[in-house]
């Protein structure tokens, strides 16, 4: 029972974060500046989503430039930029990561 309450509460607040601006922003008229800000949000947010995980996978604040997360992550960025092939980038990137983790500390 307690768990059901937790799940429902988490579902409710999460749905609130998902729906609030989705519904609101559709009805607002925007100028070129607002459009520029809005169109930059995805790339900025998604870059923020991956950067700490690649640069500091251990989460201890120590950045090691030869860690497999960073090397394979940079490879995927460059490879997907050049080829625009999502699946091939991910699969070869994970392969490279597994290879590098054999030799380099995580």
């Amino acid at each position: 029972m307690d768990l059901v309450l937790i799940f429902l509460g988490m579902t409710a607040v999460t749905y609130l974060t998902r729906s609030l601006f989705t519904v609101m922003v559709a009805r607002v008229r925007t100028g070129p500046f607002t459009e520029s800000v809005l169109s930059t949000i995805p790339l900025a947010t998604l870059t923020a989503l991956i950067t700490p995980g690649l640069l500091n996978p251990g989460g201890d604040g120590v950045v090691i430039l030869t860690n497999p997360f960073l090397l394979a992550g940079v490879y995927i960025l460059v490879f997907s930029f050049l080829t625009r092939n999502l699946l091939l980038s991910v699969l070869t990137g994970i392969g490279l990561f597994m290879l590098l983790s054999q030799f380099l500390p995580l």
Binding site: L43, G53, P68, G73, L77, S80, F81, S89
Partner: peptide, 20 residues
């Protein structure tokens, strides 16, 4: 299973890279 973290990062990195 530490390396699993990377699978998630990989898919987002590929989407970021291919959109640039």
């Amino acid at each position: 299973i530490k390396g699993m973290d990377f699978a998630m990062l990989a898919v987002f990195a590929a989407m970021v890279g291919s959109s640039i």
